[in-house]
Every structure is written in C-alpha cells, then in structure tokens.
Amino acid sequence: MQALVIAAHGSHLNPNASDPTYAHADTVRETGAFDEVREAFWKEEPHFREVIRTLESDEVFVVPLFISEGYFTEQVIPRELRLEGWEPEKWGSDGTNASQVTLEVGDAAKTVHYCGPVGTHDAMTDVIVQRAQSVTGDPDVGEGVGLAVVGHGTERNENSAKAIEYHTERIRQRGRFEKVKALFMDEEPEVDDVTEFFGNEARIASDRSNGQRQCDDIVVVPLFIADGYHTQEDIPEDMGLTEDYRLGWEVPADVDGHWIWYAGAVGTEGLMADVILERAADAGADIGGALETDVTSSDDRGHRSETETEPGTDTGTGMGD
C-alpha cells in the first residue's frame, strides 16, 4: 500500500487557509492513485507530528504544499515527522531543485519519501500559465500580454524569490507572453510599480529599443499557496487595483492606462493537484494513469545559487509562525 501526505501550513485564525489543501487532496483521492491520502498541517490537525501514525500504508510519499525550499521544508516538517537522519544536504538541492529523499521515521515502521515542495517543481510553470488562462478566460492568452509573477520577497525568504525567478525565466523562454517579469512585495522590483515594468510612459522608449511594445493587458499571478492577507489585501492595494481591499476590485482593473488581470493565489488553481502527483511520481510513487496529461517536461533546469530561509505561504496569520 502507498499513501500520500500533503503537508501544508494551515492556520489557527483563518478557516479558509486549508481549503486549497483539501481541494487538491480530494482531486488526488478521486484519481485513486493512492490507497490513502491525508492532509497534514503545522497549524491544524492532523499535525505533521501525528499524521504518519494514522496511515496503514508502509510506503508514504510526503509532498510539502509550500512554494519554496527553506525553513518549513528543511527544518519544521522533517523534524515534526521525525524523519531519521534527515539533513537538507540529502536533497542535494541548489535551492530550487530538491526532488526527494527516502528515510525512515521515528514513530512508525514506515518508509517515507520526502519530496521537494510543489512550488519549485517544473510543472508549476504550467500552473502559472494555466492561472493566466483562467483569469483572462482566454486559453491562448499571451500575445501582446504581459505576465507578472509575484512573490513575497527575499527579506526572509531567499528561495521564494529564486522559485519565482525560476518559473518566470521558464515562461519567458517559451516566448508566449509579450513580457514576463518577477515582482515582489518586499523588495525591488516591487509589485507596486507593476505598470512601469510593462511599458508605462517612462519605459516605453527603452522597451521599444528592445523590440518590445507596451502591454495594455498585464496578468498578475501571485506565487502563494493560499489566499490570505498578502494576496487579498496587500497586493491588490499595492498595485492600485483598489483603495481599500474591503471594497474589492475589478478583473480586469484599469491602472495607469493598463488592464490588470489579477488572479489570486496560484496555489488555489485546480491544476496544482497534478504538481502534487508529479512530485510523488518523481519520488517513485506508482500513480498509474492519474496524470491524464503530461504537464511537465523532464528536469531541464540549470544551476543556480544556494541557501534558503522560508517559503511563501500566505495563511492570513503572518509569516514564519
């Protein structure tokens, strides 16, 4: 028997923080690929600490529903799961390319395949593009359209920025969108200035000299796992979609003469379940035909720099808790 555990942050304060986790777990359940599927949380129940013992399967695939490698995926989850002999080096990752490591746990006779976070999987690139399609309602969206991938920022979360830049570059190389840009909440380039990066007055000349034209339409996809105060309050206000998040905003919204298509957290996209399945399959899970379409290509990534802090969850409770 094989089990899948989706390890997510959860929240003590926001009842909706776990919704995407449950939704993706249900999608995986319905594929029948695993004998058991379990949600586990840092702030909800079952806690990471007690999830393994609830399983009957000998073989357990743990997929962290986090954006990046860092504090949670390297310290908290392995420690709370009691992964024996774990150390971050076992992933052999440069910060964004952890795949999996197979270990025993201290409280049950089971083998755990501890996978890298969903956010750094190549298939995540497709989820971002899918997000752009669903928010615009245009399956061919791209031509003449700008795409901004938004992350928390590097102040506490260096690998989060790496993950965002990684997917941004992959999408850019596909040449589908007029322009693709990684933006951040906490540091340059900031999401506040989104329109400037897509050919606002001051930039048009230089952009044209690069052979790019102004993008009237800009799709903004935040690389967060769940919708919370970052994606539903800070970012919409920072971009000028609305004066006050409580008043809501239009999709698309007119900002400085551009149409901003703001998508909400990418982690809520249904296609995320495929990324979870891909992660488990990469770690050796037999998922049969659960992936109807091959949403990812092989590991074609280059090498980038190291070190990590923590991922871009947005649980509505504040970071790092």
Binding site: E45, P46, H47, E50, V51, R53, T54, D107
Partner: peptide, 21 residues
C-alpha cells in the same frame, strides 16, 4: 471520525496497546 477528531483513533490504539509515546 478521522476528519472530526484527527489522529485520535491512532493514539487511542497505541494507548490500548501500551505503546503511546
């Protein structure tokens, strides 16, 4: 029962077998 009271069955079982940690 696992959704209402997560992990309670597993820990109850351990307690009954004298293996609760």
């Amino acid at each position: 029962v696992g959704f209402f009271y997560p992990a309670t069955v597993a820990n109850w079982h351990r307690e009954r077998r004298g293996t609760l940690d």
